[in-house]
């Protein structure tokens, strides 16, 4: 009756010039829980809210290490992300073997972009139903890339994808100027505050549902910058960070968040309501 005739495959344009299968794949990304990425001059942070299918089950992992120097955050179909992450791991390993160096982030992202785009132009294939934030460091410093099922990739200063990620992006836009000079700790606080913005009314960041990942550069021997390998923080490792962005100390405690005093206070208000 009102069936859409132009969404049967990923190679047919609609008369309006759209390819519906790709747009649907983009919708799958919006169903996934939110992930945030922020890059400073020295580090890149990935932040995620994990979901559990039911009360009794564990939480689905959202951040994955690809290689020592790079990692991804996923939003969308986890099983599609598995395929991409395995591919990325293999490429990074192969690059280390043949060149004896970590793979440049731009090259890595280019390869998954290429792979995903082919799926949108070959009959019988479907686009990946997952969006990624790719964080990593190489000889040109820290990088954060966004990846979409269409094959589109773009370098970002900070970004968020997944459910209600527009709220997080608004927070990031308001604070974009401060990210470049952030320390590791400040980066984490910004990341978690951005996550909080995207949460639904009765949901909170807890040690169970929060993941933080950090990768960056540190001062190496003979003064050259060396890679500070990706580290995933889960469970109780995130406790102090979560507490530091939850209570009213956003305004008073540390001096790091002068600009966003109101923001923290607003978030704080939400938290109080849920508690009572």
């Amino acid at each position: 009756m009102f069936r859409n005739n132009y969404d049967n495959d990923s190679v047919t344009f609609s008369p309006q010039g759209r390819i519906f299968q790709i747009e649907y794949a983009g919708e799958a990304v919006k169903q996934g829980s939110v992930v945030v990425g922020i890059a400073s001059k020295t580090h890149v942070g990935l932040f995620a809210v994990k979901r559990n299918a039911e009360e009794l089950s564990s939480y689905q992992k959202k951040l994955f290490e690809i290689d020592e120097h790079t990692a991804i955050a996923i939003a969308g179909l986890t099983s599609d992300a598995r395929v991409l992450s395995n591919f990325m791991k293999q490429q990074c390993l192969g690059h280390r073997l043949t060149y004896g160096r970590p793979m440049p982030i731009h090259t890595l992202v280019g390869q998954i972009g290429e792979k995903a785009q082919i799926n949108t132009q070959v009959y019988g294939k479907r686009p990946y139903g997952v969006g990624l934030l790719v964080a990593g460091v190489d000889e040109n410093g820290p990088h954060l890339f966004e990846f979409q099922p269409s094959g589109m990739t773009e370098e970002m200063v900070a970004f968020a994808i997944g459910a209600r990620s527009q709220m997080a992006r608004t927070y990031l836009e308001r604070n974009i100027e401060s990210f470049a000079d952030c320390s590791k700790e400040e980066l984490v606080k910004h990341g978690l505050r951005a996550l909080k913005e995207s949460l639904v009314q009765d949901k909170e960041l807890t040690v169970e549902n929060t993941s933080v990942g950090l990768v960056g550069l540190k001062e190496g021997p003979n003064g050259r910058p060396s890679v500070e390998p990706f580290k995933l923080y889960d469970g109780f490792e995130t406790k102090e960070w979560i507490e530091s962005v939850s209570e009213s100390q956003g305004g008073e405690g540390e001096g790091e968040g002068e600009g966003e005093g109101e923001t923290a206070a607003a978030g704080d208000g939400d938290g109080m309501e849920v508690d009572s």
């Binding site: 043949t98 060149y99 004896g100 160096r101 440049p104 731009h106 090259t107 000889e139 040109n140």
Partner: peptide
């Protein structure tokens, strides 16, 4: 093309390749 501003493959990388 990938990295116009500075060379990335040094002699050790080249030798390995």
């Amino acid at each position: 093309y990938e990295s116009p501003d500075k060379p990335r493959l040094n002699a050790a990388n080249l030798h390995r390749y």
